[in-house]
Nucleic acid binder design. Structure first.
Lengths: 115, 115
DNA sequence: TTGACAATAAACCATATGGTTTAATATAAA
DNA sequence: TTTATATTAAACCATATGGTTTATTGTCAA
């Protein structure tokens, strides 16, 4: 198992905790975009969007390629894997609950049963 | 597909973005604990821990059962499923990358090949 | 060379966050 | 009935956050 430091997870989950940043991620999942284009799709200032992108970069979720005066942003999905792995450690707990729920539903069906 | 509101994801990822709160989660994954016991295992004040637990409750990650003057906390793993599902939407992206990496490694092995 | 344009830096603001200490509240035990 | 215990409420503090507006900086185009 690969462990990620607290600081990494802090930055990662913090980056994901903002709706604007999650929207940027969804946007970049469709392909790399210029910062200008990203910025234009939000009702906040380009300065604010720029900061959000920096936060995403700090979390390793986005990388940037500068070309003249345009900056291109690319999603780094491997960073999401880190969060996914953290959650996977608890996967057993919810599947357990889902299974219990399924069993319960099965019983209810049998009880109200086929006439 | 079940969608979770922005506010839900905000609260959830924010709750996960703090190392103390993640430790509380790990602790409660072993079974329900009294708030006192949880509190005692951190170097911060019980008031601070209490606030963290409230944050976890707000995110739906923990529920509390009051028994006299003791409060018992229980992990609610289904809340984690919400975060997991959000991440799953991007699962394809990183598996793609992992596959590419695997292919590359395979090629390198073949090239340095069996003599 | 002179503007226009894309992006950041700096300064600023209101609010949120994570922590503290000191009441206050409710329950258990003496 | 006191007194001790478990927890929260309130007030406070330093710093972080998400936003703004106004310089700056660097690059492309006229």
């Amino acid at each position: 198992m690969v462990y990620s430091s607290d600081a990494t997870l802090d930055a990662l989950f913090h980056a994901l905790a903002d709706p604007t940043r999650r929207t940027i991620i969804r946007m970049l999942a469709e392909g790399p975009r210029g910062l200008g284009e990203v910025s234009a799709s939000f009702p906040i200032s380009s300065v604010a969007v720029s900061k959000h992108v920096r936060t995403l970069e700090a979390a390793g979720l986005v990388t940037r390629q500068v070309q003249g005066r345009s900056h291109f942003c690319r999603l780094e999905p491997m960073a999401l894997l880190t969060a996914h792995r953290w959650l996977q450690a608890y996967e057993g707990f919810w599947t357990e609950r889902l299974d219990a729920l399924e069993d319960l539903l099965g019983e209810m069906k049998r009880e109200s049963g086929p006439p």
